[in-house]
Design a protein around this nucleic acid. Structure first.
Length: 463
RNA sequence: GGUCCCAUCGUCUAUCGGUUAGGACACAUGGUUUUCAUCCAUGAAAGAGGGGUUCGAUUCCCCUUGGGACCGCCA
């Protein structure tokens, strides 16, 4: 059996994390089922659709490694086809022109509101042969929705869903300017693209009932539906663009790496036994509809950070360094070429104390910055004894021909003995002089990561 | 308000009638360490409430409560 699915965002704002997850689920399922995953840009809202958002959506997905089959499908290019289908529906008696003015509709809505009953279009023009057609009104085309009976959708995630047809109104498929609405366009395109599985957010449930009627009316094969629960913000509401940290860019900005976000999103609302970390292959092999939960899940920043931390540690130094380079070039000041070699070598220990690329960058400031700034609290810790220790260290350090940890250890040890102190007594002043803070990477890592002249320069500066 | 849906630690979740209700994140405590971290160990932490069904319910059914989605000539 073939498996074609799609992700169909509208370019009316930056893609948020919920959309990304929907795309991920689609993509994973396509891979697993050896099917195809398409990207369709639903830009039929001319007012709000923006080219920049389209680009942002595509680049966000690419960043995560979600690649669609072929070119992205631009919905607006297929409008004439949508209109043809609408005309076809009219011919077949499944749609009709509605000449209600906007005022008339609004009046109805007001009236319903006052009476406290739900507004449903009153189907005035559904079978209105003897009604006088107003000359000054451009009609909309409405779909002749079923009045009685029930519609059942066997949802791959939600299970069997049953709705009374009477609750679905005669929805508009062509606006007064003859442009198609979402319900029509999406259905026609899904059919034309031979989509077999429509996997989308739970908020589309009702649309599936409407769209199924269009499929049936046209005599088209109805695809399988899967409605995945939405992601909620920390406030417990459907995620919106206004929630902070909801767009992909918010995560890229703080230095989350793609693999980590992919893993986080995968496990948000889906699970496989007790497994938490899934590499790409495992995600594809193990992902399925069955493991998707039915209730919405909340975004948890500390979890994202934790998974990112895990991935940072698992990532090879070279790869991680490239991530860092890309990150820095996008969000921070450029790094001196000469420092890059040192940074590359330092990845192996820098990654052990960071949750994000930004953390790595911050912890690497002592390498990146030409001049280190010692904060005023820490400078106080450099007393006369400290200076004496640093001086002694300099003397010994200068003598070392090949700088290794093995060569440094005896030096430090002898200083501890000589000054009757402990590691901290020796280590802290050195770290402050070299890093500018009493916090930082391991002392040996620090000393070995910097050039010999740089170490001497910094140490001499303080004594 | 109407329609539909959901309900296990704070969070993500496991359990597909019988478990000391498991794991992960976060949190707390202790240990290792070279500071901060890491790492290791330990701990606290959950079946919303009420009825059924059953020998036995977190699990199946109903009600209540709580939460959510939808209700556009937006998608």
């Amino acid at each position: 059996m073939s498996f074609n699915c799609r992700f169909a965002p509208s370019p009316t704002g930056p893609l948020h994390i919920g959309g990304v997850r929907t795309a991920l689920f689609n993509w994973l399922l396509a891979k697993k089922n050896k099917g195809k995953y398409f990207l369709r840009i639903e830009d039929t809202d001319k007012e709000r659709s923006k080219e920049e958002f389209k680009k942002q959506i595509i680049s966000s997905l690419a960043w995560l490694g979600i690649e669609h089959e072929g070119e992205e499908y631009i919905q607006s290019k297929n409008i004439s086809k949508h209109v043809t289908v609408a005309e076809d529906l009219i011919k077949k008696g499944f749609a009709y022109a509605c000449y209600c003015s906007e005022e008339e509709i609004n009046e109805q809505k007001e009236k319903c509101k006052k009476q406290g009953i739900p507004y449903v279009y009153n189907r005035k023009w559904r079978d209105a042969k003897d009604l006088q057609i107003p000359k000054d009104i451009q009609p909309v085309i409405r779909f002749k929705s079923k009045i009685s009976g029930n519609t059942i959708i066997k949802d791959l995630v939600q299970g069997e869903r049953n709705i009374s047809n009477s609750t679905i109104e005669d929805f508009v498929i062509l606006r007064k300017d003859k442009s198609p609405t979402y319900q029509l366009s999406a259905t026609v395109d899904d059919h034309e693209m031979k989509i077999t599985h429509v996997i989308r957010g739970d908020d589309h449930m009702i649309n599936s009932f409407k769209q199924k009627q269009i499929y049936d009316a046209m005599g088209w094969e109805v695809p399988k539906f899967a409605h995945i629960p939405l992601i909620h913000s920390e406030k417990g509401k459907k995620l919106s663009k206004r929630d902070n940290a909801s767009t992909i860019n918010d995560y890229i900005k703080i230095g989350i790496i793609p693999e980590a976000l992919r893993n986080y999103l995968l496990r948000l609302g889906w699970s496989y036994k007790d497994k938490e970390i899934f590499n790409l292959k495992e995600s594809i092999d193990l992902f399925d509809f069955q493991g998707i939960g039915k209730s919405p899940s909340k975004l948890d920043m500390s979890r994202i950070l934790s998974i990112n931390e895990t991935y940072l540690k698992m990532t090879e130094d070279k790869t991680l360094f490239n991530f860092l380079k890309e990150y820095v070039s996008n969000f921070k000041e450029p790094i001196d070429k000469a420092k890059e070699t040192i940074l590359m070598k330092s990845m192996k220990f820098l990654k052990n104390k960071a949750k994000t690329l930004e953390d790595i960058w911050e912890n690497a400031q002592y390498i990146i910055k030409e001049k280190i700034v010692i904060n005023s609290e820490d400078i106080k810790l450099i007393d006369d004894l400290s200076k004496k220790i640093i001086r002694d260290f300099v003397t010994e350090y200068e003598k070392i021909s090949s700088l290794t940890r093995e060569a440094l250890e005896p030096v430090i040890k002898s200083l501890i003995e000589k000054h009757k102190t402990n590691f901290k007594g020796v280590g802290q002043p050195l770290r402050i002089a070299l890093v500018g803070s009493k916090f930082g990477p391991g002392l040996y890592d620090v000393i070995l990561s910097l050039d010999k002249e740089e170490v001497l320069k910094r140490l001499k500066l303080i004594i």
